[in-house]
Amino acid sequence: MDVFMKGLSKAKEGVVAAAEKTKQGVAEAAGKTKEGVLYVGSKTKEGVVHGVATVAEKTKEQVTNVGGAVVTGVTAVAQKTVEGAGSIAAATGFVKKDQLGKNEEGAPQEGILEDMPVDPDNEAYEMPSEEGYQDYEPEA
């Protein structure tokens, strides 16, 4: 019985440690998101679009440190934060509304985080759909 109880105690310690790591990862992701939003706020009209992409990228980098179902929630929060940063930029006159959601080359930025393969159960990952990809044929 002692062996059984000791095993359960060790398992509990492992769960607590994993929860603490997840909590730490979420806190880091939130900190990076805040950094990115402050970065966007300090940019001029020309830099705002690039700044919004930076927020998304920093958040995406930190999301990889967070495991399990938390990833889905962090990704949703990050996307809403990026959308909010863009709205703030438009409201303050840093950028025109028609410039939001495009990178410096004018290509749409939507789907940055949505296409990231995420499995809350950590069982399997699927690649994003290939609808947006084109076949590449090298020139002879």
Results as ranks from 00 to 15, higher is better:
6 K>W: 15
136 Y>V: 08
127 M>R: 01
53 A>G: 09
68 G>N: 01
104 E>T: 07
136 Y>E: 15
103 N>R: 10
63 V>Q: 01
84 G>D: 05
76 A>Y: 13
61 E>I: 08
101 G>Y: 14
104 E>G: 04
104 E>P: 09
54 T>D: 00
2 D>Y: 07
140 A>D: 04
37 V>D: 00
73 G>N: 05
124 A>E: 11
61 E>Y: 02
112 I>T: 09
77 V>C: 04
65 N>I: 05
28 E>Y: 12
17 A>G: 04
127 M>L: 10
134 Q>E: 14
127 M>F: 13
123 E>H: 05
70 V>H: 01
37 V>E: 00
121 D>S: 13
116 M>I: 09
102 K>P: 06
65 N>L: 08
40 V>H: 05
50 H>W: 14
84 G>I: 11
109 Q>Y: 06
3 V>Y: 15
72 T>F: 13
9 S>V: 11
68 G>R: 15
39 Y>E: 02
3 V>H: 12
7 G>R: 15
88 I>K: 02
63 V>E: 01
35 E>L: 05
48 V>P: 00
87 S>M: 04
115 D>C: 08
51 G>I: 15
71 V>I: 07
126 E>P: 07
45 K>R: 11
120 P>V: 02
139 E>S: 04
5 M>A: 04
100 L>R: 07
130 E>A: 12
99 Q>K: 06
47 G>T: 10
100 L>I: 12
26 V>F: 04
83 E>Q: 03
129 S>Q: 10
32 K>E: 00
138 P>E: 03
126 E>L: 13
36 G>K: 12
63 V>C: 10
52 V>A: 12
56 A>D: 01
82 V>W: 09
9 S>I: 11
103 N>H: 07
135 D>L: 10
61 E>F: 10
54 T>P: 00
17 A>W: 14
88 I>D: 04
70 V>C: 01
7 G>W: 05
3 V>S: 12
46 E>L: 15
72 T>P: 02
57 E>N: 08
89 A>H: 05
98 D>G: 04
113 L>P: 13
45 K>L: 15
133 Y>P: 06
42 S>G: 04
94 F>E: 02
84 G>C: 12
68 G>A: 14
11 A>G: 02
120 P>I: 01
91 A>C: 07
125 Y>T: 07
58 K>P: 01
15 V>A: 05
25 G>K: 12
64 T>A: 10
25 G>Q: 08
133 Y>W: 07
118 V>H: 08
83 E>I: 02
97 K>C: 07
116 M>R: 15
25 G>M: 14
72 T>E: 08
129 S>G: 10
74 V>K: 01
115 D>E: 05
61 E>W: 08
90 A>F: 12
76 A>M: 15
124 A>S: 10
78 A>W: 15
119 D>M: 07
118 V>A: 09
98 D>M: 05
89 A>M: 10
24 Q>W: 15
4 F>W: 05
4 F>I: 03
97 K>P: 10
113 L>V: 10
135 D>G: 08
79 Q>E: 13
93 G>H: 06
30 A>H: 04
38 L>I: 02
130 E>Q: 11
133 Y>A: 08
32 K>S: 02
64 T>I: 09
16 V>E: 02
18 A>N: 00
59 T>M: 15
38 L>G: 05
44 T>A: 07
10 K>S: 03
14 G>D: 01
94 F>P: 04
128 P>A: 08
122 N>K: 05
99 Q>S: 04
77 V>Q: 02
84 G>L: 12
71 V>K: 04
123 E>Y: 06
92 T>C: 10
24 Q>I: 03
105 E>S: 11
90 A>G: 00
47 G>C: 09
40 V>N: 00
24 Q>N: 02
94 F>I: 12
38 L>S: 02
46 E>K: 03
36 G>Y: 14
55 V>Y: 14
7 G>S: 10
102 K>R: 11
51 G>Y: 11
55 V>F: 04
9 S>D: 04
1 M>R: 15
80 K>A: 06
91 A>F: 11
117 P>D: 05
69 A>H: 09
80 K>E: 04
113 L>I: 04
28 E>H: 06
27 A>E: 14
114 E>H: 14
139 E>I: 09
39 Y>W: 10
